[in-house]
């Protein structure tokens, strides 16, 4: 269902923008331009540029240690870039704190999920909803809606510490959704799920884009899921952009085949 949309997204973005391009992304985009992050002497992300709009699902892939999470950290305000800019809806937001970015529509999930384990599932969602200005009772009702949407209604009153792995990840997504994001960054949402669960999660992510009208950037190792879900891919290796384009384009890219799938001559 998602694949049919590929033709609309055939335009291939350049890897690096010129200085002129850095002057503000469009109203509908979240953008990293020329972002570099270093830890001590190690460069985790080097001059990476990536942008995605609402209604778009972009896959961020690459081997372990490629800098995917670091880039997501930079986009969500958890990591200040050494150089480069982060731009949200036409505004330069470089150096903004994560909570400020979250208030302005950038929500994310974590590999480690990080639910409030001593709170119930519904309370986890309600906490996020309160920040959107809802009263507690309204938040409670809305939390039920969101949980229903993610097929988690029967888990509403379970303590988060008692969830199984798959449900835990869904609640993490539900909590991010509760912040009414314009841009949703998912860090390995399908890690540890079996094939069926991953498939189901892929459908959920696609429908989130349609129903909530937000752009989604997803870090994922499950290539089957990525190929099916994403309209565009951005490949990182050792902190640098290796390839970008539609999944078919990327798969055909010799550099990608070489680095990511291993040399197969």
């Amino acid at each position: 269902m998602v694949n049919s949309a590929h033709s609309e997204h055939m335009h291939r973005k350049p890897c690096i923008w010129t200085e002129a391009d850095l002057k503000g992304c469009s109203d509908m985009e979240l953008e990293a331009s020329g972002v570099t992050v270093r830890f001590g002497g190690i460069r985790a992300v080097e001059n990476v540029s990536l942008r995605f709009g609402i209604h778009e699902i972009v896959g961020l892939i690459g081997p372990n240690g490629a800098g995917k999470t670091t880039l997501v950290n930079a986009l969500s305000g958890f990591q200040k870039p050494r150089s480069g800019r982060i731009c949200l809806a036409g505004k330069d937001v470089t150096g903004w704190r994560s909570d400020a970015l979250a208030r302005h529509g950038v929500a994310r999930t974590f590999q480690a999920v990080r639910l409030f384990r001593g709170l119930t599932v519904a309370e986890n969602i309600e906490t996020a909803l309160l920040s959107t200005g809802l009263a507690r009772s309204a938040a409670r009702a809305r939390a039920r809606d969101i949980l229903g949407y993610l097929h988690l209604s029967n888990r509403a009153d379970t303590l988060a510490s008692g969830l199984n792995y798959g449900d835990e990840r869904r609640v993490g997504i539900a909590r991010a959704l509760a912040m009414e994001p314009k841009f949703l960054l998912l860090d390995e949402p399908a890690a540890g799920l079996n094939i069926g669960e991953a498939e189901e999660l892929g459908q959920t992510i696609a429908s989130i884009r349609d129903d909530f009208g937000c752009g989604i950037l997803v870090i994922e190792h499950n290539m089957a899921l990525v190929m099916k879900l994403c309209e565009r891919l951005h490949v990182l290796a050792t902190g640098m952009t290796l390839a970008t384009g539609t999944p078919t384009e990327v798969m055909a890219d010799p550099a990608f085949k070489d680095a990511y799938l291993g040399a197969e001559t």
């Binding site: 994560s98 909570d99 979250a102 309160l130």
Partner: peptide, 19 residues
């Protein structure tokens, strides 16, 4: 009360969520 409990569980996370 809910905000306090969330903050007590994970202060950084609760701030991210707008507490």
């Amino acid at each position: 009360g809910l905000e306090m409990r969330a903050a007590a569980e994970d202060f950084t996370m609760s701030r991210l969520l707008g507490v």
